[in-house]
């Protein structure tokens, strides 16, 4: 009797293992574990509360931006203007903010980011323009607009507001992690909707989705809007951590989020991958910088080493695919 129970458990464990192993984010997960081990060796107090807190203060915006990018890429689109939208958020809020109107101004920032998302969604989803070039152009438009409002970094963020980011919730959860958890909860709710499934469907095979009676253009539009929510939260994090409005602050996020998402196993062709991949990928990129810093690699080689490790983690994701698809020909 007991033996059989053990056997059943074994089978269950095996199935679970297969599911984990076959998940697209698995190679990213492995790389992440390796990086955590590496970091733990090089940085003695890596797991201490303060270090975790300060690390997440840096990683949270990228994780949120990567979640946004993942949703967009899964829908079969791409967003290079995501960093610009984040900058615009900081610029708009820092420009208008005073000690008394913090909440309405933050809402204004959210609204503006939603508008940029709607612009991208309308151009890509409704008009069917190429996402790569379209968002490259909208990025320039958004940055231009932000420059027009605040040509130099500045603006005003009240101290009580930006200190929130350094505070702890319930005295144990650092604020950045709390924001991240809220983001993940929002995503969890969204992932239970039919819309979320439709996003996978249109990314995976647009024609089949149309034949199944899905309104492809509306769904892609919606994907950009949903992503805007995460972009805005990421922008908020940047604002809180820098306490200034700067049209350059979001710049690195556009390509870094794409890199993170791809390292996390999300396919650029759409329809494949999941949010966990985006989270892992963003953490990988963040920890990578940390590792390189603490490995005391000469700054000459830092960029080189970073590039090499990204290529390596990408190749890790490709290895199982090589074994699966033996033949390159279309049969």
């Amino acid at each position: 009797m007991i033996a059989r129970k053990n056997n059943n458990q074994k089978i269950l464990l095996k199935e679970l293992w297969l599911r984990v192993y076959k998940d697209s984010s698995f190679p990213g997960f492995v790389v992440l574990i390796l990086l955590i081990i590496g970091n733990a060796i090089l940085q003695k107090d890596f797991f201490s509360y303060n270090i975790i807190k300060s690390n997440f203060m840096i990683y949270t915006p990228l994780i949120l931006a990567s979640i946004a990018q993942a949703i967009i890429i899964i829908s079969g689109s791409l967003d290079l203007s995501l960093g610009a939208s984040m900058s615009l958020f900081t610029v708009i809020t820092a420009y208008f903010m005073t000690d008394t109107n913090v909440f309405p101004i933050v809402m204004l920032g959210f609204a503006v980011v939603f508008m940029t998302g709607a612009l991208n969604g309308a151009l890509i989803g409704k008009l069917g323009l190429s996402p790569l070039i379209t968002t490259y152009a909208t990025q320039a438009i958004i940055i231009g607009f932000a420059m027009f409002i605040l040509p130099n970094a500045g603006g005003y963020v009240p101290k009580f507001f930006y200190r929130i980011y350094r505070a702890d919730v319930l005295k144990v959860i650092p604020a950045p992690i709390f924001i991240l958890i809220i983001g993940l909860i929002i995503w969890f709710v969204i992932s239970r909707t039919t819309l979320y499934r439709y996003i996978y469907a249109i990314g995976s095979d647009e024609e089949a989705a149309y034949a199944s009676g899905l309104k492809v253009s509306n769904i892609r539009f919606a994907a950009h809007l949903i992503a805007s929510l995460f972009i805005a939260i990421a922008g908020l994090c940047i604002l809180l951590s820098t306490a200034t409005g700067d049209f350059r602050s979001g710049n690195p996020f556009a390509l870094n989020s794409v890199a993170a998402v791809v390292v996390g196993g999300v396919s650029l062709t759409g329809g494949k991958g999941n949010i966990w991949g985006a989270v892992f990928g963003a953490l990988i990129l963040g920890l990578l910088n940390n590792l390189i810093f603490f490995a005391q690699i000469s700054s000459f080689y830092q960029t080189f080493a970073k590039g090499m490790i990204i290529v390596l983690s990408l190749s890790m994701a490709a290895i199982p695919r090589i074994f699966e698809e033996k033949y390159k020909f279309g049969y």
Binding site: A201, S204, A208, K272
Partner: peptide, 10 residues
Amino acid sequence: HQNLSLIPDL
């Protein structure tokens, strides 16, 4: 459909 309207990733 003859050439299938199924989404491969679902």
